[in-house]
C-alpha cells in the first residue's frame, strides 16, 4: 500500500483509539483530580461495562440498535452504582489515604475479575454492533461503526464538559477539588460529592467499553490494557487536569497508531512506557498541564 492511504488508515485508527481512550482516561483523571485517589480498578470498571453490555444485548429481545442503546444506558448505571458502593464502603473509611486506596483498589480489581470469571466465564464473546455498515475506500475497507464510535465519544465528552462547567453539581465538584475543607465549611456534602465523582468515573469507563465492545469482545481480562493506557494519558496530560487528559489522549492515540507502523510495535510500547516514567520524573505536572 502506498504511503498516503497507509497514513490515512493510521489516522483513522488513531482517532478511534483516541476517542475511546479519552473517555476512559477522563474518568480516571476526574477521580484523581477531585478525590486524589488513583483507582487501579478503573480498568475493571471498563471490563464490567463490556460484560454487562453482553448480558443486556444477549437477553433483551430488541433489535440490535435498540439493545445496544439499552446497554449504553444500563451498563454505566450499574457500574456507577458499584463504584458508589465501593466509595462508601471502602474508600471513605480509608479517609482517601492515597496509598491505602491504591492497595484497596488493587484488591477490588482482583475481586471484580474473579466475579466476571465466575458469572460470565472465560470466553471472549462478541456483542452485535447496532448497525453494520462498511465503507469501501479505493485502497481498503473500513468499519462505519468505528467512525460512529468517535462521534458518540465526542458527544459524551461534550456532555461531561457541560456538566462540569455549567451545572451546579459540576461547580460543587470543582469546588471540592480546589479545597475540600472550605467546600465542607460552605455546607457542601463532601461525602456525596466523592461518591458521585467515583460513580461518574466508573460510568465513563463503562460507557467507553459499551462503545468498543462491538469492535472487540467482552473478556474478563480486558481491563488491563485500558488501565495502563489511561494511566499513560492521565500522566502525560498532567494528573488531574481534564483538558490535558483530552489533549494527551489525542496525541497518544494518534502517535501510537503511526509509530507502530514504522517501528517494531513491541519496541514502540517499551519506549512509550519508559517515556511516561521519565515525564513523571522530570515534568510531574505533565506535558500539557500548567505548572502546579
Amino acid at each position: 500500500m502506498s504511503f498516503g492511504p497507509f497514513l490515512l488508515l493510521a489516522v483513522l485508527e488513531g482517532t478511534v483509539m483516541a476517542a475511546v481512550l479519552a473517555l476512559t482516561a477522563v474518568g480516571l483523571s476526574l477521580v484523581f483530580g477531585v478525590m486524589r485517589v488513583v483507582n487501579v480498578a478503573h480498568g475493571e470498571f471498563y471490563m464490567l461495562g463490556a460484560v454487562i453490555a453482553w448480558f443486556v444485548t444477549y437477553y433483551l429481545p430488541f433489535p440490535p440498535a435498540l439493545v445496544w442503546l439499552a446497554a449504553l444506558i444500563i451498563a454505566p448505571l450499574i457500574v456507577a452504582l458499584i463504584a458508589a458502593l465501593t466509595d462508601t464502603l471502602v474508600l471513605k473509611r480509608l479517609n482517601y489515604d492515597p496509598e491505602a486506596t491504591i492497595v484497596a483498589t488493587i484488591g477490588l480489581l482482583y475481586m471484580l475479575q474473579q466475579a466476571a470469571l465466575t458469572f460470565y466465564g472465560p470466553d471472549a464473546r462478541p456483542v452485535v454492533a447496532p448497525f453494520e455498515w462498511r465503507i469501501q475506500l479505493p485502497w481498503f475497507g473500513y468499519s462505519g461503526y468505528k467512525l460512529f464510535v468517535v462521534v458518540a465519544a465526542v458527544v459524551i465528552l461534550a456532555a461531561v464538559w457541560l456538566f462540569m462547567t455549567r451545572s451546579k453539581a459540576g461547580l460543587v465538584m470543582r469546588a471540592t477539588q480546589v479545597d475540600r475543607d472550605t467546600a465542607q465549611a460552605f455546607g457542601i456534602n463532601v461525602d456525596r460529592v466523592y461518591a458521585g465523582t467515583f460513580a461518574l468515573g466508573g460510568a465513563l469507563a463503562a460507557a467507553a467499553a459499551v462503545l468498543i465492545v462491538p469492535i472487540q469482545q467482552a473478556h474478563y481480562l480486558m481491563g488491563h490494557d485500558p488501565l495502563l493506557l489511561s494511566f499513560i494519558v492521565v500522566i502525560i496530560g498532567g494528573l488531574g487536569s481534564i483538558r490535558g487528559t483530552l489533549v494527551a489522549a489525542l496525541v497518544i492515540g494518534l502517535s501510537d497508531g503511526i509509530i507502530s507502523m514504522f517501528f517494531s510495535p513491541t519496541l514502540a510500547k517499551i519506549i512509550a512506557t519508559l517515556l511516561v516514567a521519565l515525564v513523571l520524573v522530570f515534568r510531574p505536572q505533565g506535558l500539557f498541564g500548567a505548572k502546579a
Binding site: 488513583v38 492515597p98 496509598e99 491504591i102 495502563l228 494511566f231 500522566i235 494528573l239 517494531s264 513491541t266 519496541l267 510500547k269 517499551i270 512506557t273 519508559l274 511516561v276 516514567a277 513523571l280 520524573v281 522530570f282 510531574p284
Partner: peptide
Amino acid sequence: ALRTAGVSFMIVTLMFAQAGYLTLLY
C-alpha cells in the same frame, strides 16, 4: 524514581517494571 514521591513513585516504578517485562518479551 526517587525524584518523585507517593503516588507518582508508585506509577513510575510500575511503568519501569512494565517496560522491563516487555523488554524480556522483545
